[in-house]
């Protein structure tokens, strides 16, 4: 539980941080809230020689809305997500999900950027961002590029983020007023990663689903955007048979590990149950 030796950097601008990453390549890692990276360093599963603390960069904080897009800067903590009036009003699923992450002490430090950039399939925000069709702003030596959350994750801890890039912001299309939403997470205890979790966003009109997206957490080595499940539900009245077909479609794309949370078969089934429950709650919340 003792990390190896490293050099600590605390840049005050994104440009400076990127420059440090460029000069040290693979040997440097950006540090945001530290709740994934530091435990891995203590276990010596990660041993970066240069740690680039982004905590001193004022530009990386804040939540704003402009022209139908909500932008959350990367170093915004989960606690700040919970406290945001803007999110509570326009995007309440972010608050609901944040409240299911770890515990208050961790949420004071853990950030949205760190949560989505690290590529840990146990993190809750990546699947939510896929459900919301968010995109990530990646800043590197050549400026900014945007990558959709649905295209970002390649394998556990492998993402589209290059070693010299920093994920600086998350952009989320503001969902229509009256949408339904729910994040359902099954976990063994406070602070645990999900046995399985599901995010559902939908809109309804006259009892019929007009749009629906579903994504799943911790049931594969990446977050899963369940496109087929959403397509099956779209246009339906959420009748039992259609829901069962959509659940089956979502379960079909899972490939969970067997671990202390349960065998793979159980975790797949729990993904289905979580989706079903999220769907029911989302439908209840949606204005007809």
């Amino acid at each position: 539980m003792i990390p190896g030796e490293f050099t600590y950097h605390r840049p005050s601008s994104v440009a400076e941080a990127v420059a440090i990453l460029v000069s040290h390549g693979d040997e440097a890692r950006p540090l945001s809230g530290g709740h994934s990276l530091i435990p891995m360093m203590k276990l010596r599963m990660a041993a970066p020689e240069h740690l680039v603390d982004l905590g001193g960069i004022a530009d990386l904080k804040g939540i704003s809305e402009d022209g139908g897009t909500i932008t959350i800067r990367a170093m915004t903590t989960q606690h700040e997500l919970i406290e945001s009036d803007l999110l509570s009003e326009k995007l309440p699923i972010v608050r609901e999900t944040s409240l299911l992450i770890a515990d208050p002490q961790i949420r004071y430090l853990g950030t949205l950027g760190g949560n989505v950039a690290n590529g840990d399939p146990g993190n809750d925000m990546p699947a939510l961002m896929q459900c919301l069709n968010a995109s990530y702003v990646l800043t590197g030596p050549d400026g900014n590029r945007e990558v959709a959350a649905r295209d970002f994750y390649e394998a556990a801890y492998f993402t589209a983020l290059a070693p010299e890039e920093i994920l600086t912001a998350v952009k989320i299309p503001t969902p229509p007023a009256g949408h339904g939403w729910a994040y359902e997470k099954l976990k063994r205890k406070v602070g645990d990663y999900a046995t399985a979790a599901a995010a559902v966003m939908l809109s309804m009109s006259g009892g019929t689903v007009t749009s629906c997206s579903v994504a799943l957490t911790n049931v594969a080595d990446t977050p899963l955007y369940a496109a087929d499940a959403g397509d099956i539900l779209n246009g339906s009245t959420l009748d039992e048979a259609t829901v069962a077909r959509a659940v089956a479609a979502a379960e079909a794309i899972t490939d969970p590990a067997s671990d202390g949370r349960g065998p793979a078969e159980y975790r797949t089934k729990m993904a289905g149950i979580m989706m079903q429950r999220a769907l029911a709650r989302a439908a209840e919340r949606a204005s007809a």
């Binding site: 515990d103 063994r188 205890k189 406070v190 602070g191 645990d192 990663y193 671990d259 202390g260």
Partner: peptide
């Protein structure tokens, strides 16, 4: 309800951290 020291068949000790070893909080 969940606390255990498990071994796999090849003798690896599983769950020897508080992430897996169940210590209930006030919530549970």
């Amino acid at each position: 309800m969940g606390q255990e020291i498990r071994y796999d068949e090849t003798g690896n000790v599983l769950g020897a951290s508080f992430m897996d070893f169940f210590i209930p909080t006030a919530v549970e």
